[in-house]
C-alpha cells in the first residue's frame, strides 16, 4: 500500500469552511492506519511539509469559494513555482508541496479535493447542501487510497 497523507483543513466555526476538517474527522475513524495518516487542521502550516515528504500520495480536502454549493472535484496539484501564498501564515497545497520538495526533495503525487461552500459565516453546522455530500466524498477517498496511482480528475455537480 502507498503511504498516504490526508489533510482536511478549515475552520469548523465558519460554516461550510469546516467541511474539510469534518471529512478528515470521519476518515481518522475509518481509514487511519500505519499507511494512512489523516490530519484535521485549522489551516495549512509550514511544518506539514514534513509529513508530506513522507507520503507517496497527499490528499488535501478544503472548502471552495466557487461552484454550486455541494459540488465537488478532485484534481491533481503540483508544487507552486511562484510561492506567493507560501509567504503568509496561510499556506496553499501547492506552496506546501513546493516547500516539501525544496527542503526534503520529496515530490509525492498530490490531489486537492474541494467542495463548494454555501457560506463561510459564523456557525458550527454545514449547510444541508454540503452536509449531504459528505458520505460520497468519504467513500470516494476510501476508494482512492486503495487503488493504484493516477486517479483521473473527477467532479460532481
Amino acid at each position: 500500500m502507498r503511504r498516504t497523507l490526508i489533510i482536511g483543513y478549515g475552520n469548523p466555526l465558519r460554516g461550510d469552511d469546516g467541511v474539510g476538517w469534518r471529512i478528515a474527522g470521519r476518515l481518522i475513524e475509518i481509514v487511519a492506519d500505519e499507511f494512512t495518516n489523516v490530519l484535521a487542521v485549522h489551516q495549512l502550516t509550514p511544518e506539514l511539509a514534513e509529513p508530506i515528504s513522507e507520503a507517496e500520495l497527499a490528499i488535501f480536502i478544503d472548502a471552495a469559494h466557487n461552484g454550486e454549493p455541494g459540488s465537488w472535484k478532485c484534481e491533481s496539484v503540483a508544487p507552486d513555482s511562484i510561492p506567493s501564498n507560501a509567504l503568509a501564515h496561510y499556506f496553499t497545497p501547492a506552496g506546501l508541496l513546493a516547500y516539501a520538495e525544496a527542503i526534503y526533495l520529496a515530490k509525492p503525487e498530490a490531489l486537492v479535493l474541494s467542495i463548494a461552500a454555501a457560506t463561510f459565516d459564523c456557525g458550527e453546522q454545514l449547510t444541508p447542501g454540503v452536509e449531504v455530500v459528505l458520505p460520497e466524498v468519504v467513500q470516494y477517498i476510501c476508494a482512492l487510497i486503495s487503488r493504484p496511482p493516477k486517479v483521473p480528475s473527477r467532479s460532481y455537480a
Binding site: 509550514p46 510561492p83 507560501a86 509567504l87 516547500y99 525544496a102
Partner: peptide, 11 residues
C-alpha cells in the same frame, strides 16, 4: 526573498 529562497540559500 521568500521561504523557498531561504531553503536554497541557507537550508
Amino acid at each position: 526573498r521568500n521561504i523557498l529562497g531561504v531553503v536554497e540559500a541557507h537550508p
